[in-house]
Design a binder for these strands. Structure first.
Lengths: 345, 345
DNA sequence: CCGCTTCGTCGAACCGCTTCGACGAGCCGG
DNA sequence: CCGGCTCGTCGAAGCGGTTCGACGAAGCGG
């Protein structure tokens, strides 16, 4: 492991000159620069990350904080992570995957923040009221959220535009002629815990349906195929004439499809299904392939990291607040309802 | 940000004493220790990670190197990652997610290794002949593989026991009475690239089938639902009387199910399907739920990190080589073949 | 009672890099 | 021709810890 000293000695300059060649913090003449670069090449020199971090007080490490419960990450979250990692790598930063206990581990978070290992952090799975945000801000760590709290004043975040996504999905189904549309959300517990996407889409669904003069029916579902089956059963009991299901639950939607088939209801001829915030890969797994609101996926992670790095590198303290809608991708799980005219007769 | 100096001053001891209290490298008396701990608590002291890393030449950061191509991580890989992250966190290490270009980025790898940011690395998606292994070893970075190369001499690795997994899967199907079993593998390109799991399972399938006196038929498939459909079509052409499919392709298996249904073949009554190296979550998504060889998932990631940390903390240079089989979990996609007796009569 | 460990603590030398102040050398305008 | 700049470089002081050698005090066997 060659050090800067070695390079300086070989190039017959001082260490500070070598440092300036590397960082560009001060002008260096052509000739000197060439000598230094040659010496570096000859010694196969690589700057020591720790030393650089200590001296410059910039670790060039970003933290990606995500609660990791028992059942791991869904496809959507995984896309956030990979997008963030790729973006960080592209701008010369490292990305640490830091599993933080969802709940009471605030102290652990504070400790982490105080170790000054992270120049900044991306916080995932944000609740509407999330005490982690305050703790992090208080610790003085630059912060970008994927998702957002209820009050976003002074915060940087990237999130899915749930309102618009729901509006488009409902408009699409209504346009096909559907009138009895049931919304299958995450579980009641998830809703109660203040999980933003579940709550925002719930409200947006009410607004959208009411706007079309239709009755909004929402059914919660556990995040599992079995949960989807149960939810569909509940939905049919509640709304026997339903012709379309809008599902905000990547996992449950497969159970919904199964239960539909099991009851002799054809998709899409008897019942149409639209899956919200879903990746193409997952949508293609279903039979028929799911018409879905395609999640921005890795783009969210990428944008979050880019915003964070811009904040760190630039002196700016401007906030980055951005919402990305999901794009409607029509596949085989939707059609006009069988028993009505498309215009709703 | 309080420093060690501040703590030492408040506790009226020297910095080295504070350091010894923290690291336990030398004995400290009860009284002194108490004074120091009190001072730390009062100042809310947290050691600076960079400084500690520089002085001790141990960053307490592990790298998780994985090629990240366009389509992101599958459920199995995601489980590795989360398992590794949780394990690292549990033993006081950080885990950096480092996307390394699959192919020619060896120089980038070497550079990364020379920066001394990682105390050790876990390498994922290992090929049978993987030049990254040599590069890393040469750079002197402690290394554990998830997966393994062809020659594992002197290497530490954790991998799935593909041979046993295939043997069990085949034995199970044969036991049910199946005789015409087709193996759907990853794509031909993947096989050609030397991807270990694809090659090992291929060979194991041949061995297992031959051992039962049956003809081994393998069909490659793209990693997509469409690839699965195409593969099933090819399989039926090749083996019109097939009664069971063994699939080593989490994504394609959904296409296989779809195509089967599309052709009026019932699962499991007409054709049984077993999915290899599959997580319960994914298996439950299918209709019917997939009988699967359940992948060890996060356990692999955890074991890899634990082995690596043991190697780093202990002085030992013993190798850790471990194979974990997938466990057969019977769900709804398998049954005895319709047209024959269970004993194959 | 003496010399020798062992225990607990201190001071100082790093670890490898960044950054600040200083300074000689050219260059400019007046 | 001179004062004052800017340019390019150097030396040294950190950054915040770890670790080694030293050293006084206490404990011990002979």
């Amino acid at each position: 492991m060659a050090t800067m000293q070695d390079v300086a000695r070989l190039a017959q300059v001082s260490v500070s000159t070598v440092s300036y060649v590397l960082t560009g913090a001060r002008p260096i003449s052509q000739g000197t620069r060439a000598k230094v670069l040659a010496a570096m090449a000859q010694l196969d020199y690589q700057p020591n990350a720790m030393a650089r971090g200590l001296a410059s007080r910039r670790s060039r490490i970003l933290g990606l904080l995500l609660p990791m419960d028992e059942r791991g990450l869904g496809a959507t979250e995984t896309a956030f992570v990979t997008g963030a990692a790729a973006a960080a790598s592209a701008v010369g930063y490292h990305l640490v995957l830091s599993p933080v206990g969802g709940g009471g581990d605030l102290d652990g978070l504070r400790r982490l923040a105080s170790q000054r290992m992270f120049d900044g952090v991306v916080l995932m799975e944000v609740q509407l009221a999330d005490e982690r945000v305050g703790a992090l801000q208080q610790a003085g760590v630059p912060l970008v959220l994927i998702g957002r709290t209820g009050d976003t004043a002074g915060l940087s975040y990237v999130d899915i535009d749930f309102e618009q996504t729901v509006r488009e999905a409902v408009a699409y189904l209504v346009g096909l002629g559907h009138r009895q549309i049931v919304y299958v959300n995450h579980s009641a517990e998830t809703l109660a815990s203040g999980y933003g996407p579940a709550l925002r889409t719930r409200d947006a669904f009410v607004t959208a349906m009411t706007g079309h003069g239709l009755e909004p029916v929402m059914i919660p579902a556990q995040d599992s195929a079995a949960g989807g089956r149960a939810a569909l059963a509940a939905a049919i009991t509640r709304t026997p004439g339903l012709t379309a299901v809008l599902a905000m639950n990547e996992t449950a939607v497969f159970g919904i499809l199964g239960e539909l088939t099991g009851r002799g209801l054809a998709v899409p001829d008897d019942v149409s299904v639209v899956s919200m915030v879903t990746s193409p890969q997952v949508a293609e797994l279903a039979t028929p392939a799911l018409t879905a609101m395609t999640s921005p996926g890795s783009a969210l992670g990428r944008i979050a990291v880019e915003a964070l790095v811009r904040h760190l590198d630039g002196a700016g303290d401007e906030r980055h607040q951005q919402l990305l809608p999901c794009a409607l991708e029509i596949r085989g799980s939707t059609a006009a309802p069988r028993s009505r005219h498309p215009d709703g007769g």
